[in-house]
Amino acid sequence: MPGPLASLKVLDFSTLLPGPFASLLLADMGAEVLRIESPTRLDLLRVLPPHDQGVSASHAYLNRNKRSLALDLKQPEALEVIRSLLRDHDIVLEQFRPGVMERLGLGYEALKAINPKLIYVSITGYGQTGPYKDRAGHDINYLALAGLASYTGRADSGPLPLGMQVADVAGGSLHGVIGLLAAVIARQQTGQGQHLDVSMTDCAFSLNAMAGAGYLACGAEPGPEDQMLNGGSFYDYYRSRDGRWMSVGSLEPAFMLQLCTALGRPELAAQGLSPQPAQQQALKNELRVEFEKHDFAQLCELFAGVDACVEPVLRLGEAVRHPQVRARDLVKQVPRGDGSSQAQMACPLKFSGGLPEPRHMGAGLGEHTDQVLGELGFSAQRIEALRRAKVIV
């Protein structure tokens, strides 16, 4: 089964999380992804713990189904290899700061001259333009500057450091894939490629969605715990007697009535309809009392048969074993290459035509160098000469 993106061949110059997560989605959907890795500047994801049999679990997952070519881009001979690859690899994904690829002779204009159909995707923190384009940053900084962190947290303790990288993944990775595939469709119509400038801060800014729309149109500045969905209403988390948590999203009246009835307090349901902050806080206090009368297991059992938008806050290990996750086949066994396999999160997209099974975990540094160069027509002698010159490993 080739997958819906089997016609795409991607050169992936990215490291760490945003670019690799984007190219993972492409590879899972059948694209041929070749990682161009530095033999002298290690991708830190390769050493990120925890490790499984000496291999970073994160690297093994984020780089599955991709081949690895170890190439020193600072060496003049490396350009010859890239030019050869561009004959049939017409998508480039890179994640360097603005100007780095140009200094290496690998900027969009230089590569476009070799292949006019090239789609060139640049994922950066702040984009290719603007006063912050050369500034360093991480996910927490992009969320802060985009305004998201200002109303995500508790009024008395401030913003929360989130457990997953929203700007990196929802911003850079997912928007990068959306833009890339849109450029592929445009190329099918025009025959021309283009350069896609993906800023993780830009994309995080767009995730303000409802709060941003309200501010721009009406001047309504959101703050922590003052919106319906950020803790300003009963829509929140509630602690059980034994210190676990339940999520309550019973916004609609029918769901609210089922919630309160299940807790033995049906008279509270009418308070859920009040827009008054004082009424919402009073309701939250009542719900806290009711939830803390029960242990977590009792609450799970209580709400298992109640369609009230109330669900337990599961630990990751519990989520993996949840019947819904199992029914959706969200964990796959991925071959290691030695006959064994590693459990990994599956591609979440479900196509009626199916997807190819995972082929292999993230490859070793330069694992496919000789294979790739051989496919390009490089002789064994030429490959060995490049290795002696430390252009490849």
Rank of each mutant, 00 (worst) to 15 (best):
F96Y: 07
I36C: 05
M200Y: 02
V331A: 06
F13E: 03
L299M: 00
S58T: 08
M200C: 01
V393Q: 15
L216G: 13
T201Q: 02
I82A: 10
Q53A: 14
K66M: 01
L263F: 11
E367L: 07
A6E: 09
L355M: 14
A304N: 10
G172L: 01
G354T: 10
V100A: 01
V166I: 08
E301Q: 14
V331G: 03
E286L: 08
V331S: 04
M101C: 05
E94W: 06
H360P: 03
A346G: 06
A204L: 09
S274M: 10
M29Y: 06
F255N: 06
G339Q: 07
L16S: 11
G317S: 13
H175M: 09
Q280S: 03
H89S: 00
L73G: 00
E292Q: 13
L16W: 13
P49D: 04
M210H: 15
Q298C: 04
S56V: 12
P277G: 02
L42R: 07
F291K: 11
L162A: 01
V391W: 10
L181N: 01
T15G: 02
S233E: 11
R35D: 02
G137F: 02
T124M: 09
V393E: 15
S173M: 03
T15N: 09
A254P: 09
E357Q: 05
G99V: 08
P2A: 12
V100M: 01
H51G: 02
G362L: 08
A204T: 07
S157A: 10
E32W: 14
S7A: 12
P49I: 12
A209C: 14
L299Q: 09
A155F: 11
L259P: 14
K390A: 12
D226A: 15
